[in-house]
Structure formats: C-alpha cells, structure tokens
Amino acid sequence: MNDPFGTPDSVLVLGGTSDIARALVRRLVARGTKKVMLTGRDRARLDVVAAELRSDGADAVTSLEFDATDVAGAASIVDSAFAEAGRVDLIIVAVGLLVDDAQEERDPAKVAESIAVNFAWPAVALARVAEHLRSQGGGHAVVLSTVAAVRVRRANYVYGSAKAGLDEYARNLHQALAGSGAGITVVRPGFVHSKMTVGRPPPPMSTTPDAVAEDVVRGLERGAEVVWSPARLRLIFAVLRLLPEVLWRRLPM
C-alpha cells in the first residue's frame, strides 16, 4: 500500500543494478519504503545494492537472476517475484542495454539483443505485472525510457527505436489500466552519467542518476504519466520532435 504521502510500502525492481533504479530505491527507502526485492542479471552486484539498502534500514532481498534476452521467460520471472514478495506497490522496470557502436549496429545478433532487452522483455514483463496489479487491487509501475525514444536519432537508432517501442507500449498500457487502480509512469531522462554511459562525451543538459531519481519521486507524488528529467527537456523535445528530418539529422548530437 502507498502511505498517504505517496510512498510505496514494498518495491520490486526488475533490473536492480541500474544506477537510476538504485538511486530511486534509496530515495524511496529514505521516505519510508520498507520492503525491496531486487532482480537482475548480476547476482554479485545485486547483493551489493541490497546490502546498501539494508544499511539504509530497508528489508531488502536479492532475488531472482534473469537474462533479459530470454523474452519468453519474462512472465515467469514476474510471477515468481510476486509469489515471493506478496503484495508489491511499486515495480521499477529498469532493464536496458545501450547499443550505439556503429559496428555493433550492423551486427544482427546485437540488433536482436537490443530489441529484446530494451523492448520485448520489459514489454512482456509489464503485461504480466499489469495482471498482478489488477488482481491485487492497485499498484504502480515506473518504466525507464529515454528522451531518445521521443525522437530517435541516428547516433543510437537501434537503442532509440527499441526504447520508442517500449515508451509507446507502456503509455498505452497505462491507458488500458484506467479504472483498475493500477498505473504506469514513463521516465524520460536525458543523457545520464552512469555506468551505462561511461566514456561517452556528455551532451548539453546531461544529468545524474540522483537527479533523475528525485524527479521521479516528485512525478510519482503528483501522479505524472510521463516524467522528463531534467524537466526542461519536455519543452525542448516539443520543438525537436517537429523538426524536419533534413534539419534533425544535421544537429550535432
């Protein structure tokens, strides 16, 4: 159950080592979240995050390991997580894989992997999450998207188009959930300094996992369907998404 201040009592993270998810959960724990279940690919790193959350005072457990390229297995991962956690008030979907290397983008296996991890796996997992939220009579999911999903750019079009699919999917699933007590918030950060982007030159208006987490917490508080981080990206992309293709592809980004 959320408390009256909008803080969920129990949280499930799919992709628990994501820097943004980690910052977000720490913030929620500071605001009163008691139970956290972490799932992801890398057991050792999940354990580190869980230990950190326990020292913050949460009852945090590392749970299932999964491989986000195994799209068919997504539903059963979600089922087991709910079976173990009981009621979950907030689900954070933070699986993702940045593919923006020109060589990799020409590799069919890499394209398949990017679409699996950035779109197919989270979409299947969300479908299952939605069913659990319906039957438990409420709950919320946060889906990490990206501004690159709003207007896909050439520099990382494989990643961007997969995220664009997830972004559209999650927002429409939110509409489909109307009246069920459940909902979905899509988060569109700009360039975030994190382990995903190490070594890449930051564009203007880059941000940090902590800043994104703060924006998400405030977005959840006001019931936002989409959270931009930083918030001014919303205005900028309102313009950029209308830009003619000839201009768009010449932009230095």
């Binding site: 319906r134 409420g138 489909a176 109307a178 069920s180 007590g181």
Partner: peptide, 29 residues
C-alpha cells in the same frame, strides 16, 4: 467499473471499485 477494471475480476461477483477513506489518501480497488 468499465473496461480494464471490470475485465480483470473475471466471473466473480461484485463490481470492482476504487475505495478510499474520508481523507481520500491511498485508494485501492
């Protein structure tokens, strides 16, 4: 009670409804 909310409860009797207390915090279905 329309759309998704109702579909989710299957054939069990009763309308799915969002209920809150007088303070209107933390509603659930």
């Amino acid at each position: 009670t329309t759309g998704a909310g109702r579909g989710s409860v299957g054939e069990r009797p009763g309308d799915a409804r969002l209920l809150a207390g007088w303070g209107r915090t933390s509603p659930t279905i």
